[in-house]
Every structure is written in C-alpha cells, then in structure tokens.
Design a binder for these strands. Structure first.
Length: 324
DNA sequence: TTGCAGGGGTCAA
DNA sequence: TTGACCCCTGCA
C-alpha cells in the first residue's frame, strides 16, 4: 500500500506473531540515504539502543520497536503496523521533508561538505514535547551515557509498563512518565530532595541530583496547565522570543530551550549551542574568544532556516573524532 | 589509592 | 559575571 508517497508492506512473523512493516526505498529519501546510526547517535534522542550495525531498539510514543535497514535500502520496523507509520513514524522521522535541498543548502564550505558526507543520512527527529523537555533538563552538566541511564531510570521508576504481546527488545519496557506522575513523585525543592525522595527511595543520590526538583517543578507547571506549549505560536514567532517562552520552565535555560524547540519538531532554524558545537564553530569559523552569543548569531546567519539540520550533521561529524 | 577536572547547564547573587 | 549544584568517569 501507499501512504504519504511511501510504499509500505505489512508482514507477520509466524513464530513470534509480531506485526512488522517494511517501508520501501527509504535510502532514496535523500542523496545521503537514511543512516540509523547518524540519526540515533547524534545526541538528539536517548531511548534508542544499538543491537548491531544496522539495528536499533527503542520506544516512541509508548511503542517498543526494533528498527533495521536492509541491503535494498528499505526500513523494517518490527512491532508496527501501517497505521503506526501514518500516526507515528512518518512524522517522527521527518519523512515529510525532502532533504536534498536542505543538504545542498547547508554545504556552504569544505567543512560542511565533509560533515554532510559523513552524517548527512541522519534525520532530525520530531519527538514528543514532554519527553524531550525532561530528557534535556536531565542533560544539563551531564554526559550522554549517564543521560540515557537517568532517562531509563525515570521510565522504570515512574512509567507504566508497555502493553505488548511481543518480546521485542527494548530498553526497559516502560512508558515515559507523564508530567502529572512526575510532579507527584519527584521532590519539589532542594531541601525536600534529601528527605522525601530518599525516604521514598525515588530520586535519592543515585538519581538526577539537583535536576530532580527542576523536573518536578516543570512537570507541575505542565500538569496544572500553568504552562501550555502553543506549538503553532512557538514555531512562528521570533526564535529569541520562542526560546524565552520555554525558559520560564525551571531547569530550562537557553541551551535546553533550543534543544526542545529543535528536537520536538517545533522549529528547524535553531542550532543549540553546547560545548561541542561551541568548540566546533570556534575552531572552524570563529575564534577562541567568541562568546555563546557570537556563536548563536553566526549559526543563525550562516545556516538560516536549516540551522537545526546543519547542527545535527556537523555535531555528529565532530563528535565522531573528525574535528580535533 | 586519592584527588581533581569536566561533562551537550541552570540559577541566584 | 561567577560559583555552587548532584553524580559519575577518566586520568594523573
């Protein structure tokens, strides 16, 4: 069958009875194809686990799946239906966008040419707002393996088990907890951290530390309706203003706000400036004395509306040992 | 073994 | 603009 221009085939594994779909010729999506590793290991998501070179397990919208590519350039999603493609994967993998023009647009110099050759098969994911928000609050002053562990801890401790008749391999098999659950279970204030959380064995010293009350307080604002993200508005207003609006959430500064805006699919013209992006831009385009503001200004002017895509590709390229 | 720096930052003074 | 913050890891 055809869905949104993609040929989809549904199959069923006779032994496991798991429903699978094949999305044909996703490698034709762009000149750089569809690269699972560049997509899942470019720092934009935390719930995907590598099973082998071309196979990843993960959870999206409470669906535990295994995703792989084959030699024909097809994408196979185990434990999914054509309906899921329509409702989840088409948007999640940004399949409505043709990357050919975007790739051409960001290749403005030799560095970006190499970055795109290396990582241009990575797709910018459109993830759920709350999961992206809480994951990036956790990311502050943290490293990726630990962020992944903390996100999984959060799901294991507070998320509902995923209802599935399958034995699909996934991280923990738990949903990402709602803001309502998080606001009720994590401590609100720093002084409550030691007592309430430890006493309940919830977010004691093994958990997210000072980020814990940030998660809880932001969760409370969301669950009480004190903060209601207006995606249409956030995507259309000036990016400085959009950033500012998200920064009212505790634990959300400019960097986290940028990540949420980009990775939850609200806007693609934002290049989050973390230590690696800063290091890269300083080395390739500016100099050591450049401030975060200088760097943000530069990426905004240089990459324009496609700054988010450019960031994903050069970040992964730089992080993979190709910069220094 | 121990100490220290740093990690995809944020917040308050 | 600066230092503290929770916790872990790598390194000397």
């Amino acid at each position: 069958m055809q869905i949104n221009g993609f040929k989809i085939t549904e199959t069923k594994n006779k032994q496991t009875k798991i429903q699978n779909i094949t999305i044909h010729n996703v490698s034709d999506l762009s000149p750089n194809g569809f690269d699972l590793q560049a997509t899942f290991e470019s720092g934009q998501c935390f719930r995907w686990r590598k099973l082998d070179e071309k196979k990843y397990a993960g959870i999206v919208k409470n669906k535990a799946v295994v995703i792989s590519t084959n030699k024909s350039g097809d994408l196979i999603i185990e434990n999914s239906t054509a309906e899921d493609f329509q409702n989840i994967w088409y948007s999640y993998f940004d399949f409505s966008k043709d990357y050919s023009d975007i790739l051409k647009d960001v290749v403005k110099d030799e560095f970006m040419k190499k970055a795109v050759e290396f990582a241009g098969g990575g797709r910018v994911l459109n993830q759920e707002f709350e999961e992206t928000l809480f994951s990036y609050i956790i990311s502050a002053q943290n490293n990726i393996p630990r962020i992944k562990k903390l996100v999984e801890d959060l799901c294991t401790r507070f998320g509902k088990p995923i209802k599935s008749n399958s034995n699909v391999e996934c991280f923990s098999g738990f949903e990402f907890p709602s803001s309502d659950i998080l606001s009720k279970n994590l401590c609100q204030a720093k002084d409550g951290f030691e007592n309430k959380c430890k006493a309940n064995n919830l977010c004691g010293e093994q958990f997210a530390g000072y980020r814990c009350p940030y998660i809880s307080r932001s969760a409370k604002m969301l669950s009480k309706g004190d903060f209601v993200p207006n995606y249409a508005n956030l995507s259309s207003i000036d990016q400085d203003q959009a950033r500012k609006e998200l920064c009212v959430l505790p634990g959300v500064g400019e960097k986290v706000a940028d990540c949420v805006l980009l990775y939850s699919g609200i806007r693609k013209d934002i290049c989050p400036i973390d230590t690696w992006v800063a290091k890269t831009i300083k080395k390739i385009y500016l100099d050591e004395s450049s401030s975060i503001k200088d760097i943000r200004e530069f990426t905004r002017n240089y990459f324009g509306n496609n700054a988010g895509y450019a960031q994903l590709w050069f970040f992964y390229y730089a992080r993979s040992g190709n910069l220094i």
